[in-house]
Structures are given as structure tokens and as C-alpha cells.
Amino acid sequence: MSTRKPRNNALLALMLAVASFLSISAIVRTALGAEIVVAEEEQLRHGKVLYASYCSGCHGVNGDGQGPAAAMLIVKPRDFTSGLFKFRSTPNGTLPTDADLMRTITRGVNRTSMPEWSLLPERERMALVQYVKSFYPGFAESGPGRPIFIPAPPATLGSPESIARGRQLYEMLECGRCHGPNGLGDGPSAATLAPDSWGNPQKPFNFTKGALKSGAAPEDVYRTFMTGLNGTAMPSYADVFDEPDGENVKPGDAWNLVSYVLSLRTPSRPGTQVASEEGAAVNAAYRGDLARAGYTAPLPEPAQAGANKESKP
């Protein structure tokens, strides 16, 4: 017996060591987990405070888009409880990523009252992202869709050849049914579009006028026609380009369509950012809207002119 004792002891020691290692790591894990939970709660608390002062006037305290200013606005503030988000890098019908929401909040939505919040510290915008997500359970349940891959734009982007090919694609894919044969937003189906999923009037974009809602970088346009704008008539064309049939659509053609769409903009400088004069008087519109609605919460000054001007939807 005694000869075996040391071995048993050794085994016991080993087991104890393993057990204590396990329990230590368990403790460490809970500590980390708890820290994460605390951090999330802290972020949500922070987001709630920021939301109440910056966003609720339009989006409503309950996130339903029914803030006091909403009635005065032409383009209605998003109802976050609907789970429908327009500006996403994720496939049609899915939820946006944190980065998508961050981009929208940072840049604002051109041609609408949605301000850009680029002057808020990143930490605060992150907290707002988390708080906005808390209005729709789908974010916690199934999470965002898988973002599409946007390859680097080719050197030919914006070249006359690329624009010409893009024009062919525009006709073949019949963007003009809604956006009009020359991109003026006056296609045969434009007048008959039913209200969007929130019950508000919708209008195809006039590519020759005004800023694109979610930005005019080539990637923004690419993203828009690949994933579509949830809740609106604007469909996803991802299938057409993801599996080009080689006959009608060829690999790389998506960038040619981008070239054409951007070439319609005046001044015609494909691939450049929103022309600055367009938004010289920006933010006045939404400030006016808010004042009319008796909403006086502080708004940060816009980082740059050129962002938000409300026009008809």
C-alpha cells in the first residue's frame, strides 16, 4: 500500500492542479464575461442618454420613428422597430452590420433631415449604434447579414469605355423603368410606385440632381444596386452580377454600371465625392424642421458643409 501512496498522491496533486486550473480559468472567464456584459450595459446606458438628446426628436423615444419632429418631415425618420434598414452592405432583406449603422450615423442621409453626426466622438456613435439595435430583437436573435464583398474599383472606372458599357447595362437591366431612360427619376413605373414599407411615398432617385442618400463614392453606388434598399422598390441586382452569364453580363460589369450612374451626375465627375455647392446651405433644412416642431435639443455642428438637404423623397 505504502509504495503506491506517492503515486496516488501525485495523481491527487495532478488532479487538484487540473481542477484548480480549471476553476481559475473559470473564474477568469466569468470575470471577462462579466466585464463584457458590464461594458455592453454601460454602452447601452450611454447610448440611451445620447439617443434621448440627439435622436428621439425625430426617431421617437421608442424608436418607432414617431418623434415630435416626424410629422413635419417630408422623408420620415426611420422606424427602428420595423427591422428594415435601407443602407446596408448585407444582402437584401437582412439586417445591417454595426459598420453600416456607424457609416449612416456618421455621414447622415443626404437629401433628408437625417443629420451627420461625425462630430460626436467615435465612442458615442458606437454607443448609439448599440442602442439603435436594441429596438429590434432580430439583431440579438439572428444578427446582421453577411456583408457582400466589394472588390477594389478598376483603373478603368469612369473611362469613356466603361461609361458606354455601363449605359448598355443600364438599358439591359432596365434601371430606367424606375429611374427613367436618362436617369431623371421619371421612368414609366415611377409614378405608380406604391408607398414604401413604412407607408410613405417613394421616388426613384434622379441621378442628375442632388446628393446620393448614402454617399457618392463608387463603392456606395455598387453597394446600393447589389443589396437594394430594404423597405423600398429599389431591388437587389446581386444575382445578375454575382453569377454573370457571360453573354448579357460579364465579370466586372458592375463597375461599368457604377461608371455610368456616376457619369450622370452634374458636374459630371465620375467617382468623385458629392459636389460641395450642393450642400452649401445644408443642415439649415433639418434645423428648420426641428425648430418648427419645437424641438430644441442640442445638435452638433456639421463637420463639413455638403451633407444634408431635404428634398422631396
Binding site: 439591359m172 422598390a233 445578375v240
Partner: peptide
């Protein structure tokens, strides 16, 4: 364009140009 507007399932809206 095929635009499905479910309340429970995930919505969808994809374009079917004549050659698709």
C-alpha cells in the same frame, strides 16, 4: 422585381431582368 413583404420571415426584393 420580386418584392416579398413578410411580417414574420425575412423580406426580399430581387430584380429579374428579362434574361434572368
Amino acid at each position: 422585381n420580386v418584392h416579398g413583404m413578410p411580417k414574420v420571415n425575412a423580406p426580399w426584393n430581387f430584380a429579374m431582368p428579362k434574361f434572368v
